[in-house]
């Protein structure tokens, strides 16, 4: 059997099919700003009862950059992210400051000037989609739940859930590695574990498209782990559909030590690596949901259906 037909048999979703038959067909461009602009997402999330990391302040004009040190003084740690950033680019996590130097999550340190230069880059649109001028968000740093500490190398692990017409269809846990530099971005070398929709336990793991059992840096077993607050995560993911009305959607969450699951961002063009982590294609699951008018059902019912249908 050729590779092509083997992948077809696994109902693997390719980029062309994702774009042509799902994103272009179902996702309405009018709804994109709700997910592309993280400030808007945050505001809407609050309205729909989905918790997000608390906002400290926004930097909208270059003039505000000069007084950045004063603005940020009340906070010992914080995160700077571009409102329209994509793929985790331009996100700066500061874990503490001492004598005018800011310590980053990856251990390096930055001066106020370095931070200001970074903010200038954010505002001029270096990290934003299409290079448009952007706004910088300064928000509370997520102190992640200790539960995945042994399978994470610096940075914050996050959970991606693909939601189709409001039904969570596939999920994965993304684990930063030394290679990914603390980022939960698979392109940059983070490891990924497929998660059972029914139970919230990790099933398989992959790294750079190859199967693995243990975390490449810590050596701890990744599979068979229970994700805490799974019930809530599925509920928030299902409700994210009401928030933006995008039928094909990726929702990214982190689990905060004190506040539980928080929505980090939504994605109208979620990637396809989730299929490698789960060792199964998205195609069949999307077909199961398509055309059943689930978007009319309440979120709780959609979650129940998902847990019954997808293991």
């Amino acid at each position: 059997m050729s590779t092509y037909s083997k992948l077809k048999a696994k109902s693997l979703l390719g980029l062309n099919k994702r774009n042509a038959d799902y994103i272009l067909r179902f996702n309405n461009r009018r709804d994109y700003p709700k997910v592309d602009n993280k400030i808007l997402t945050k505001r809407l999330a609050r309205a729909f009862g989905i918790p997000t990391p608390p906002l400290y302040f926004l930097i909208e004009a270059p003039g505000q950059i000069r007084s950045f040190a004063q603005s940020v003084a009340p906070y010992s740690d914080f995160v700077i992210k571009p409102a329209r950033g994509s793929g985790g680019e331009g996100i700066l996590v500061i874990t503490g400051s001492k004598a005018g130097r800011f310590r980053r999550a990856n251990g390096s340190s930055m001066t106020v000037q370095d931070l200001q230069s970074h903010l200038h880059n954010v505002l001029s649109g270096l990290f934003s989609l299409g290079g448009l001028p952007d706004t910088a968000i300064v928000e509370r740093r997520v102190i992640f739940d200790e539960v995945f500490k042994d399978i994470t190398f610096s940075g914050v692990p996050d959970i991606r859930i693909i939601v189709f017409f409001g039904v969570p269809v596939m999920a994965m846990l993304r684990l930063p590695t030394a290679m990914s530099g603390g980022k939960a971005n698979l392109h940059q070398g983070a490891a990924a574990a497929g998660v059972s929709i029914a139970t919230g336990t990790t099933l398989h793991a992959s790294w750079f498209g190859e199967d693995i059992e243990e975390h490449p840096d810590t050596g701890e077993v990744i599979t068979g782990r229970q994700i805490p607050h799974w019930e809530h995560l599925l509920d928030y993911a299902a409700r994210a559909y009401e928030l933006c009305k995008l039928p094909y959607l990726g929702a990214d969450f982190v689990i905060d030590r004190d506040h539980g699951p928080l929505l980090l961002e939504l994605n109208a063009r979620p990637g396809l690596q989730i299929q490698i982590a789960n060792r199964i294609g998205l195609g069949a699951r999307l077909k199961t949901v398509e055309g059943k008018k689930f978007e009319l059902a309440p979120p709780a019912e959609r979650v129940r259906y998902a847990r019954e249908t997808f293991s």
């Binding site: 590779t3 992948l7 498209g209 490698i276």
Partner: peptide
């Protein structure tokens, strides 16, 4: 290139 990218699924 996807045939290579998703090779582990085969």
């Amino acid at each position: 290139t996807e045939l290579y990218r998703f090779r582990s699924l085969t």
